[in-house]
Design a protein around this nucleic acid. Structure first.
Lengths: 181, 181
DNA sequence: CCGTCATATATCGGACCGATATACTAGGGC
DNA sequence: GCCCTAGTATATCGGTCCGATATATGACGG
């Protein structure tokens, strides 16, 4: 799923500037399963405009640089539909945290504890936000399904970490004592 | 977590060729939370060898090109420890599947059903493999924690999809009928 | 009055993926 | 016997993308 398609998808929901599109990948509902940086979004929008998939409306603002509001065209929606026909690539997960825990023998138990506690708090925040999203607005069935899945996964991960945290730390402590002998 | 560090980490467990390192990211225990391609691994190993972090032993094989077996040096292990001291970057998740379900209105319900069923089967396989891994070998506490978390998440995701699949499809069907009127 | 944060655009270096090329073995099907 | 595919193993390359940085300004707090 390249950044151009991602931009078209965001624009299919409402007109936006490059900056606003970015925010949707940093904070909005997309943030949980897709990412895109400004360094990719701006060139993608320029290319899309050249291909007639989006139109640009420059809105002058006093002082600030002009705001370029992008809108999806008829051709853009067709391109988006076409892009949605492809079979999805397998999910990609990159977790430095799991890497560090996997090699826990290279860490102090204190740092592992700090990392796990931080992650539990993070998952709790994410889950709360997703659940509030559901209460505030009624989205389509697909959106609701994805939201529920996200909430479920965050909850399961947090539960597991809470349940196994102390056991892990105890084992790391005893290993450390063994190594010190 | 750059590819060079990832390679050092794999080599800390046992000596390996570039090809074997790749397999660990495609199939092995790392596959669930880190990825690296050959196009990144080979240059990373060359660089690491130049910096003295690994040594190379070329094993001639009849017919086949020479096998280059890499081993972690003392300096390499120090570098790995140092790299493990950094604070981990936030997890990255990229899921084309969730993107497609989010925009389910651009899909036929049949395709959505096929995608979800395929994913449930995938999660079941992954979970089974992780659970077998636990039965077969006793790894360190960190490894066991990560393995258990993976199994838990795959299980939770599969359960959610099984429980909400029919509801989603029913809603998509009724939406489609509405649009047809 | 200054630092920091937010808005908004854009570019650039470097890292990385995916595809491809090369080269050979082994095994299955016809 | 021959071909095709899959597996082992190295390596490069085009293109894409991230993260940092530059530019410009308003708003707000200390």
């Amino acid at each position: 799923m390249d950044v151009k398609t991602l931009c078209l998808a965001v624009l299919s929901r409402r007109d936006a500037t490059g900056y606003e599109i970015r925010k949707q990948f940093a904070e909005g509902p997309f943030a949980h399963f897709q990412k895109a940086s400004l360094g990719a979004i701006y060139p993608a929008l320029t290319r899309a405009a050249e291909e007639g998939l989006v139109t640009v409306t420059e809105e002058a603002q006093d002082g600030r640089p002009d705001k370029k509001v992008y809108s999806l065209t008829e051709a853009g929606e067709t391109a988006l539909r076409r892009a949605c026909e492809i079979d999805p690539e397998p999910d990609q997960v990159r977790s430095d945290l799991l890497f560090l825990i996997f090699f826990a023998n290279y860490q102090t138990p204190e740092k592992i504890a700090r990392l796990i506690d931080g992650r539990i708090a993070f998952y709790e925040t994410q889950q709360r936000e997703l659940d509030e999203l559901s209460a505030n607005c009624v989205a389509g069935p697909g959106r609701e399904f994805v939201r529920g899945l996200g909430s479920t996964i965050y909850c399961a991960a947090a539960d597991y970490m809470r349940a196994n945290r102390d056991d892990l730390l105890a084992k790391l402590d005893s290993e450390e004592r063994l190594a010190a002998e």
